[in-house]
Protein backbone atom coordinates (compact mmCIF):
# COMPACT_ATOMS: atom_id res chain seq x y z
CA UNK A 1 0.00 0.00 0.00
CA UNK A 2 2.08 2.90 -1.23
CA UNK A 3 -0.34 5.80 -1.39
CA UNK A 4 -3.28 6.21 0.93
CA UNK A 5 -6.58 7.81 -0.02
CA UNK A 6 -7.75 7.81 3.58
CA UNK A 7 -5.62 7.61 6.68
CA UNK A 8 -7.21 7.59 10.13
CA UNK A 9 -5.13 7.57 13.27
CA UNK A 10 -6.38 7.17 16.83
CA UNK A 11 -9.85 8.33 15.90
CA UNK A 12 -12.27 8.54 18.81
CA UNK A 13 -15.89 9.62 18.94
CA UNK A 14 -18.70 9.18 21.42
CA UNK A 15 -22.25 10.44 21.52
CA UNK A 16 -24.21 11.67 24.48
CA UNK A 17 -27.38 9.71 25.00
CA UNK A 18 -30.23 10.29 27.39
CA UNK A 19 -29.75 10.68 30.32
CA UNK A 20 -26.34 12.32 29.72
CA UNK A 21 -24.47 9.08 29.18
CA UNK A 22 -21.46 9.04 26.88
CA UNK A 23 -21.60 6.13 24.48
CA UNK A 24 -18.31 5.49 22.67
CA UNK A 25 -18.89 4.78 19.01
CA UNK A 26 -15.39 4.85 17.57
CA UNK A 27 -12.45 3.94 19.82
CA UNK A 28 -8.93 4.76 18.77
CA UNK A 29 -9.48 3.72 15.19
CA UNK A 30 -6.49 3.37 12.85
CA UNK A 31 -7.57 2.78 9.27
CA UNK A 32 -5.82 2.92 5.92
CA UNK A 33 -7.61 3.00 2.60
CA UNK A 34 -5.18 2.57 -0.29
CA UNK A 35 -5.57 4.89 -3.25
CA UNK A 36 -7.27 3.22 -6.20
CA UNK A 37 -9.55 0.20 -6.08
CA UNK A 38 -12.60 -0.69 -4.08
CA UNK A 39 -12.17 -0.76 -0.32
CA UNK A 40 -14.95 -2.37 1.69
CA UNK A 41 -15.66 -1.15 5.20
CA UNK A 42 -17.47 -3.89 7.08
CA UNK A 43 -18.91 -4.25 10.54
CA UNK A 44 -22.10 -5.00 12.42
CA UNK A 45 -24.70 -2.36 13.05
CA UNK A 46 -23.39 0.10 15.60
CA UNK A 47 -19.75 -0.73 14.92
CA UNK A 48 -18.97 2.86 13.96
CA UNK A 49 -18.86 2.62 10.16
CA UNK A 50 -21.17 5.51 9.37
CA UNK A 51 -19.69 7.72 12.08
CA UNK A 52 -16.25 6.98 10.66
CA UNK A 53 -17.37 7.92 7.17
CA UNK A 54 -18.94 11.12 8.50
CA UNK A 55 -15.74 12.03 10.30
CA UNK A 56 -13.66 11.69 7.18
CA UNK A 57 -16.15 13.95 5.38
CA UNK A 58 -15.97 16.58 8.12
CA UNK A 59 -19.63 16.20 9.06
CA UNK A 60 -18.83 14.83 12.50
CA UNK A 61 -15.97 16.16 14.60
CA UNK A 62 -13.74 13.51 16.20
CA UNK A 63 -12.90 13.92 19.88
CA UNK A 64 -9.33 12.88 19.23
CA UNK A 65 -7.21 11.48 16.45
CA UNK A 66 -6.39 12.62 12.95
CA UNK A 67 -8.06 12.24 9.59
CA UNK A 68 -6.23 12.61 6.31
CA UNK A 69 -8.17 12.37 3.06
CA UNK A 70 -6.31 12.43 -0.25
CA UNK A 71 -3.29 13.75 1.60
CA UNK A 72 -5.11 16.61 3.36
CA UNK A 73 -5.94 16.93 7.03
CA UNK A 74 -9.69 17.00 7.60
CA UNK A 75 -11.63 19.03 8.59
CA UNK A 76 -9.02 21.81 8.48
CA UNK A 77 -8.14 21.39 4.83
CA UNK A 78 -11.56 20.18 3.75
CA UNK A 79 -12.11 23.08 1.31
CA UNK A 80 -9.01 21.97 -0.60
CA UNK A 81 -10.18 18.40 -0.94
CA UNK A 82 -13.97 18.49 -0.91
CA UNK A 83 -14.09 18.95 -4.67
CA UNK A 84 -12.35 15.60 -5.13
CA UNK A 85 -14.80 13.65 -2.97
CA UNK A 86 -18.22 12.31 -3.80
CA UNK A 87 -20.18 10.83 -0.93
CA UNK A 88 -23.50 9.29 0.01
CA UNK A 89 -23.61 8.62 3.73
CA UNK A 90 -26.30 6.43 5.28
CA UNK A 91 -29.43 7.29 3.32
CA UNK A 92 -29.66 9.34 0.14
CA UNK A 93 -30.65 12.80 1.38
CA UNK A 94 -31.77 14.95 -1.49
CA UNK A 95 -34.32 17.75 -1.31
CA UNK A 96 -37.55 15.73 -1.39
CA UNK A 97 -39.73 18.42 -2.96
CA UNK A 98 -37.39 18.95 -5.92
CA UNK A 99 -37.01 16.69 -8.92
CA UNK A 100 -33.95 14.52 -9.26
CA UNK A 101 -32.73 16.74 -12.07
CA UNK A 102 -33.32 19.91 -10.03
CA UNK A 103 -31.38 18.44 -7.12
CA UNK A 104 -28.45 17.58 -9.35
CA UNK A 105 -28.57 20.96 -11.06
CA UNK A 106 -28.42 22.72 -7.71
CA UNK A 107 -25.47 20.64 -6.59
CA UNK A 108 -23.76 21.14 -9.94
CA UNK A 109 -24.28 24.86 -9.66
CA UNK A 110 -22.89 24.91 -6.13
CA UNK A 111 -19.85 22.94 -7.24
CA UNK A 112 -19.35 24.94 -10.46
CA UNK A 113 -19.90 21.81 -12.55
CA UNK A 114 -21.22 22.34 -16.10
CA UNK A 115 -24.95 21.65 -16.40
CA UNK A 116 -24.32 19.14 -19.20
CA UNK A 117 -22.70 16.86 -16.63
CA UNK A 118 -26.13 16.37 -15.00
CA UNK A 119 -27.42 14.47 -18.02
CA UNK A 120 -24.27 12.37 -18.13
CA UNK A 121 -24.58 11.20 -14.53
CA UNK A 122 -28.31 10.62 -14.91
CA UNK A 123 -27.52 8.34 -17.82
CA UNK A 124 -24.77 6.69 -15.86
CA UNK A 125 -27.16 5.62 -13.08
CA UNK A 126 -30.11 4.96 -15.40
CA UNK A 127 -32.39 7.64 -13.98
CA UNK A 128 -32.93 9.95 -16.92
CA UNK A 129 -36.50 8.82 -17.60
CA UNK A 130 -37.61 9.77 -14.09
CA UNK A 131 -35.37 12.79 -13.67
CA UNK A 132 -38.28 15.24 -13.69
CA UNK A 133 -40.22 13.50 -10.91
CA UNK A 134 -39.99 14.87 -7.35
CA UNK A 135 -37.54 12.90 -5.27
CA UNK A 136 -40.22 12.22 -2.66
CA UNK A 137 -41.97 10.03 -5.26
CA UNK A 138 -38.84 7.97 -5.86
CA UNK A 139 -38.46 4.47 -4.51
CA UNK A 140 -35.54 3.94 -2.16
CA UNK A 141 -33.61 2.40 -5.02
CA UNK A 142 -34.20 5.42 -7.22
CA UNK A 143 -33.11 7.71 -4.43
CA UNK A 144 -29.95 5.66 -4.15
CA UNK A 145 -29.32 6.06 -7.86
CA UNK A 146 -29.93 9.81 -7.70
CA UNK A 147 -27.59 10.16 -4.73
CA UNK A 148 -24.90 8.13 -6.48
CA UNK A 149 -25.37 10.37 -9.51
CA UNK A 150 -24.73 13.35 -7.22
CA UNK A 151 -21.46 11.82 -6.06
CA UNK A 152 -20.31 11.44 -9.67
CA UNK A 153 -20.98 15.04 -10.69
CA UNK A 154 -17.44 16.19 -9.99
CA UNK A 155 -15.66 13.09 -11.29
CA UNK A 156 -14.29 12.51 -7.80
CA UNK A 157 -11.01 10.83 -6.91
CA UNK A 158 -12.60 9.36 -3.80
CA UNK A 159 -16.14 8.00 -3.82
CA UNK A 160 -17.65 7.22 -0.42
CA UNK A 161 -20.76 5.06 -0.51
CA UNK A 162 -22.65 3.94 2.57
CA UNK A 163 -24.93 0.98 1.85
CA UNK A 164 -25.26 1.90 -1.83
CA UNK A 165 -27.28 -1.18 -2.77
CA UNK A 166 -29.95 -0.69 -0.10
CA UNK A 167 -33.36 -0.98 -1.71
CA UNK A 168 -32.03 -1.72 -5.18
CA UNK A 169 -33.47 -4.49 -7.31
CA UNK A 170 -31.09 -7.18 -8.61
CA UNK A 171 -30.42 -5.21 -11.77
CA UNK A 172 -29.70 -2.11 -9.70
CA UNK A 173 -27.34 -4.07 -7.45
CA UNK A 174 -25.55 -5.36 -10.50
CA UNK A 175 -25.32 -1.85 -11.96
CA UNK A 176 -23.92 -0.35 -8.76
CA UNK A 177 -21.40 -3.17 -8.48
CA UNK A 178 -20.33 -2.60 -12.07
CA UNK A 179 -20.17 1.14 -11.46
CA UNK A 180 -17.91 0.69 -8.45
CA UNK A 181 -15.64 -1.57 -10.44
CA UNK A 182 -15.60 0.85 -13.36
CA UNK A 183 -14.68 3.77 -11.08
CA UNK A 184 -11.90 1.73 -9.52
CA UNK A 185 -10.62 0.70 -12.94
CA UNK A 186 -10.45 4.40 -13.84
CA UNK A 187 -8.00 4.84 -10.99
CA UNK A 188 -10.46 6.24 -8.48
CA UNK A 189 -10.84 5.06 -4.92
CA UNK A 190 -14.20 3.68 -3.87
CA UNK A 191 -14.75 3.37 -0.13
CA UNK A 192 -17.92 1.39 0.37
CA UNK A 193 -19.70 0.33 3.51
CA UNK A 194 -22.27 -2.41 3.11
CA UNK A 195 -23.81 -5.48 4.62
CA UNK A 196 -24.20 -7.09 1.18
CA UNK A 197 -21.11 -9.24 1.67
CA UNK A 198 -21.70 -11.32 -1.43
CA UNK A 199 -21.68 -8.19 -3.59
CA UNK A 200 -18.61 -6.79 -1.90
CA UNK A 201 -16.74 -10.03 -2.29
CA UNK A 202 -17.18 -9.73 -6.02
CA UNK A 203 -15.94 -6.20 -6.28
CA UNK A 204 -13.70 -5.31 -3.32
CA UNK A 205 -9.92 -5.25 -3.56
CA UNK A 206 -9.20 -4.44 0.05
CA UNK A 207 -11.26 -4.62 3.19
CA UNK A 208 -11.44 -3.33 6.74
CA UNK A 209 -13.60 -4.87 9.42
CA UNK A 210 -14.81 -2.86 12.39
CA UNK A 211 -16.38 -4.17 15.55
CA UNK A 212 -17.49 -2.07 18.50
CA UNK A 213 -15.70 0.97 17.10
CA UNK A 214 -12.35 -0.71 16.59
CA UNK A 215 -10.50 -2.25 13.70
CA UNK A 216 -10.39 -6.04 13.86
CA UNK A 217 -9.00 -6.78 10.41
CA UNK A 218 -7.59 -4.91 7.47
CA UNK A 219 -5.85 -5.86 4.26
CA UNK A 220 -6.34 -7.33 0.82
CA UNK A 221 -9.53 -9.33 0.45
CA UNK A 222 -7.62 -12.31 -0.96
CA UNK A 223 -5.28 -12.32 2.01
CA UNK A 224 -8.17 -12.08 4.43
CA UNK A 225 -9.93 -15.03 2.84
CA UNK A 226 -6.72 -17.05 2.66
CA UNK A 227 -6.14 -16.45 6.35
CA UNK A 228 -9.44 -18.18 7.07
CA UNK A 229 -8.04 -21.53 5.83
CA UNK A 230 -7.25 -23.40 2.63
CA UNK A 231 -9.93 -24.36 0.13
CA UNK A 232 -11.57 -27.79 0.42
CA UNK A 233 -13.02 -30.10 -2.16
CA UNK A 234 -16.45 -31.67 -1.78
CA UNK A 235 -17.05 -34.86 -3.77
CA UNK A 236 -20.39 -36.58 -4.14
CA UNK A 237 -20.18 -40.23 -5.19
CA UNK A 238 -22.35 -43.34 -4.85
CA UNK A 239 -20.19 -44.80 -2.05
CA UNK A 240 -18.53 -42.03 -0.02
CA UNK A 241 -16.95 -44.39 2.54
CA UNK A 242 -15.04 -46.29 -0.15
CA UNK A 243 -14.15 -43.05 -1.90
CA UNK A 244 -12.70 -41.60 1.33
CA UNK A 245 -10.57 -44.73 1.79
CA UNK A 246 -9.34 -44.57 -1.80
CA UNK A 247 -8.35 -40.91 -1.49
CA UNK A 248 -6.72 -41.46 1.91
CA UNK A 249 -4.74 -44.26 0.25
CA UNK A 250 -3.11 -41.60 -1.90
CA UNK A 251 -2.07 -39.58 1.13
CA UNK A 252 -4.87 -37.01 0.94
CA UNK A 253 -6.86 -36.01 4.00
CA UNK A 254 -10.47 -37.03 3.29
CA UNK A 255 -13.48 -37.67 5.46
CA UNK A 256 -17.18 -38.21 4.99
CA UNK A 257 -19.37 -35.27 5.92
CA UNK A 258 -23.09 -35.15 5.25
CA UNK A 259 -23.14 -37.88 2.60
CA UNK A 260 -20.21 -36.40 0.68
CA UNK A 261 -16.44 -36.75 0.85
CA UNK A 262 -14.59 -33.61 1.92
CA UNK A 263 -10.94 -33.39 0.96
CA UNK A 264 -8.91 -30.80 2.85
CA UNK A 265 -5.87 -29.14 1.29
CA UNK A 266 -6.93 -30.87 -1.89
CA UNK A 267 -4.96 -31.77 -4.99
CA UNK A 268 -6.30 -30.68 -8.40
CA UNK A 269 -9.85 -31.91 -8.95
CA UNK A 270 -8.74 -33.85 -12.02
CA UNK A 271 -6.39 -35.98 -9.88
CA UNK A 272 -9.18 -36.73 -7.42
CA UNK A 273 -11.46 -37.71 -10.27
CA UNK A 274 -8.84 -39.99 -11.79
CA UNK A 275 -8.22 -41.81 -8.48
CA UNK A 276 -11.94 -42.36 -7.91
CA UNK A 277 -12.46 -43.59 -11.44
CA UNK A 278 -9.63 -46.08 -10.78
CA UNK A 279 -11.76 -47.73 -8.08
CA UNK A 280 -14.91 -47.60 -10.15
CA UNK A 281 -16.44 -44.52 -8.54
CA UNK A 282 -17.49 -41.66 -10.73
CA UNK A 283 -18.06 -38.24 -9.11
CA UNK A 284 -21.57 -36.83 -9.41
CA UNK A 285 -20.32 -33.46 -8.07
CA UNK A 286 -16.94 -31.86 -7.53
CA UNK A 287 -17.09 -28.51 -5.72
CA UNK A 288 -14.22 -26.37 -4.48
CA UNK A 289 -15.23 -24.91 -1.11
CA UNK A 290 -13.40 -21.63 -0.50
CA UNK A 291 -13.63 -19.47 2.61
CA UNK A 292 -15.99 -16.64 1.71
CA UNK A 293 -16.26 -13.10 3.00
CA UNK A 294 -19.37 -13.88 4.99
CA UNK A 295 -17.73 -16.63 7.00
CA UNK A 296 -14.62 -14.49 7.51
CA UNK A 297 -16.76 -11.56 8.59
CA UNK A 298 -18.82 -13.65 10.99
CA UNK A 299 -15.70 -15.13 12.51
CA UNK A 300 -14.09 -11.73 12.93
CA UNK A 301 -17.10 -10.04 14.43
CA UNK A 302 -18.46 -12.90 16.50
CA UNK A 303 -19.42 -11.59 19.93
CA UNK A 304 -18.15 -8.19 18.93
CA UNK A 305 -18.74 -6.63 22.30
CA UNK A 306 -15.93 -4.49 23.64
CA UNK A 307 -14.33 -7.42 25.46
CA UNK A 308 -14.06 -9.45 22.30
CA UNK A 309 -12.30 -6.74 20.35
CA UNK A 310 -8.55 -6.87 20.06
CA UNK A 311 -6.45 -3.79 20.48
CA UNK A 312 -5.99 -2.02 17.13
CA UNK A 313 -2.25 -2.17 17.60
CA UNK A 314 -2.48 -5.96 17.36
CA UNK A 315 -4.10 -5.78 13.95
CA UNK A 316 -1.68 -5.84 11.10
CA UNK A 317 -2.28 -4.00 7.89
Amino acid sequence: MDELAVELRGLTKSYVRFPLTRVPVVRGLNLDVPAGGVHALLGPNGSGKTTTLRMLLGLVRPESGTVRVLGHAVPGALPAVVGRIGAVVEQPRLFPAFSGRRNLELLARAADVPAARVDEVLDEVGLRDRARDPVRRYSLGMKQRAAIAATLLRRPDLVVLDEPTNGLDPQGVHDVRALMRRLADQGRTVLVSSHALGDLEQVADTVSVLAAGRLVAQGRLDDLLASRGAPRLRVRVADPERAALALAGHGWSAHVDGGAVVVTDPPPAADVSRVLAGVGLYPEELTVLRPDLESAYLALTAGSGPAAVRDPAEVGS
Binding site: R54, L57, G58, L59, P75, L78, P79, V82, I85, G86, A87, V88, V89, Q91, P92, R93, L94, F95, P96, L107, A110, A111, A147, A150
Partner: peptide
Protein backbone atom coordinates in the same frame (compact mmCIF):
# COMPACT_ATOMS: atom_id res chain seq x y z
CA UNK B 1 -34.37 24.00 9.02
CA UNK B 2 -35.91 22.19 6.05
CA UNK B 3 -32.42 21.04 5.10
CA UNK B 4 -31.68 19.78 8.58
CA UNK B 5 -35.08 18.09 8.69
CA UNK B 6 -34.66 16.35 5.36
CA UNK B 7 -31.05 15.48 6.19
CA UNK B 8 -29.84 17.07 2.98
CA UNK B 9 -27.49 19.42 4.85
CA UNK B 10 -24.96 16.60 5.09
CA UNK B 11 -25.01 16.02 1.36
CA UNK B 12 -24.81 19.76 0.75
CA UNK B 13 -21.72 20.01 2.97
CA UNK B 14 -19.98 17.33 0.95
CA UNK B 15 -20.23 19.78 -1.94
CA UNK B 16 -19.62 23.06 -0.14
CA UNK B 17 -16.80 23.60 2.33
CA UNK B 18 -15.99 25.07 4.72
Amino acid sequence: TAEFGAGSMGLWLTFVAP
